[in-house]
Amino acid sequence: MYKILSADLEKCTGCRTCELVCSMKHHDEYNPQKSRIRVYNFVEQGYFVPVVCLHCNEAYCEKVCPAGAITVNYDEKKGVRAVQISKEKCVGCKMCIFACPFGNVRFIEDGYSDKCDLCGGDPECVKSCAKEALKFKEVSASYMQKIKSTAEKILAAYQQT
């Protein structure tokens, strides 16, 4: 059982502190442009949607990386499973950006692709989320089932359109 980074849309206020702390942690500046997590505001609907790497079970980015720079790493002790980009191995070819259907791999600084690595198991964004909309926790099988059925509903609604 691994922890997952989850976002509660009912709780997110769109304050975007997570973007600031993320950019500070990984790029040494408070700059939402350089954040790996991004919050999209839907003012009319009154919702804010934080979006970050899903650490896919079968990661598109990992499969296409021609440099072997993307790996799925497990830390059994911490209960963390992260799809990570090695900055050293990445040549900046951007194939992963082409492959990620969620737009969650970014090209922030020249030379390498950038994405959430779960901060080694202690995500900065979660720690800074005042409303506790972002959580990093182990989830039960029943919770996963709930997520899956919600996803299926979204998919069904989507396919109707």
Partner: peptide
């Protein structure tokens, strides 16, 4: 480009996103 690649590859209906495509506002949330 990844999101857009997915739309092309799976020939998804984009009528609702058309306005967002060009002006960078198509994102995962949307």
């Amino acid at each position: 480009i990844g999101i857009i690649r997915n739309l092309v590859e799976n020939s998804r209906d984009i009528s609702q996103f058309k306005d967002y495509l060009a002006n960078f506002k198509l994102n995962t949330g949307r």
